[in-house]
Nucleic acid binder design. Sequence first.
DNA 1: GTCTATACCTCGATAGAC
DNA 2: GTCTATCGAGGTATAGAC
Lengths: 205, 205
Amino acid sequence: MARTPGSRAETTASALRREALRLIARHGYAAVSMRQIAAAVGVQVGALYAYTPDKQSLLYDLLASHMQALLAAWAEADDPAATADDRLERFVRLHLRFNLARPEAVFLSYMELRNLTPDNFARIEAMRRSYEDGLTAILTQGQAEGSMRHGDVRLTGMAIIAMLTGANTWYREGGRLDRAQIEQEYLTLVRGAVGIPAGALAGQA
Amino acid sequence: MARTPGSRAETTASALRREALRLIARHGYAAVSMRQIAAAVGVQVGALYAYTPDKQSLLYDLLASHMQALLAAWAEADDPAATADDRLERFVRLHLRFNLARPEAVFLSYMELRNLTPDNFARIEAMRRSYEDGLTAILTQGQAEGSMRHGDVRLTGMAIIAMLTGANTWYREGGRLDRAQIEQEYLTLVRGAVGIPAGALAGQA
DNA sequence: GTCTATACCTCGATAGAC
DNA sequence: GTCTATCGAGGTATAGAC
């Protein structure tokens, strides 16, 4: 049987990531065994160690690649030259779109932080903090431009992110509200929370 | 040594709950062993089974008593005869006050849901739903009274709860903001989100 | 009520054959 | 790259002595 060298390896590697993500999201890192993951991939447990040095690295890779993808998506969506109102709208839409599309990875990213080693935890936290800083910069800009009226910038930023991420706890594909409606609803809530007048349109100072 | 019969048992029972809560909050249900809990309590592992039939019941009891306390606190704080604005303020303050005072129990209540058996999960979910319904009733009332302008009631309720509960992820005793300041900040955010005019005071229609 | 001892199971990780 | 076999550790829960 002719088979491209390495092609089987790539299949197993991606299956490993996919099944590990699925199982850990459902049962938790500590509750999922390497044997379970191997069974889901369709190999014996020893074979997994050709792809990951240990279980911890597997978890870290899942979280790190998720955060890297999020940061990259925001870097592409943001326009630092735009008004704060406009940037805030982009942030809200990107956050919802990105997170609702990957519920399992999002779930892992806040549920499994405590199962990281201290070094790995610090790396993930730095990326998360960088993402949060993107939002607080927008809030600071909005206050300077006079379009937003809110109190403590850090608290407001954390509140907005918590509110948006919370959508993942109840959103289900094919539910009562579609993603476009959800984006609009959350956008209205966020704009009200930071004191943007109800009549103001994004993009105007 | 004269000792009140049963007093030693009560001490162990409460120590068991306290240490189990602390350890599970820190490491997760699946990662904490009955041996670890026993060591923290100061007994051997066999002794724990005089207080709980198994590990699962221990987890369920911790979550159920937390939710019961929350529902009782809200029943006492709420005034169904008041205006929606006033009731919303009470809800925000109670939620923050209650949750910031019990970070470990709050953490368990959303992190360990998946480690409950289906039956136990359904019981906890019913209590959580009942709490959420308290808020959505307020939002519906506010819309009817004309003091609030928001969209989907269920989405708005979930968004508010997620925003408020998020405070637990960053709040630390003795931090930059005290609890009174935090309550005020979140109250402003919530009132803005549901479209209560910035000038309006709670208690006014 | 708590102890010691233990039954029985599953874990992560490795070794060596193919 | 994957298999089988295995090591040493640690898991929940129970039995029976005190």
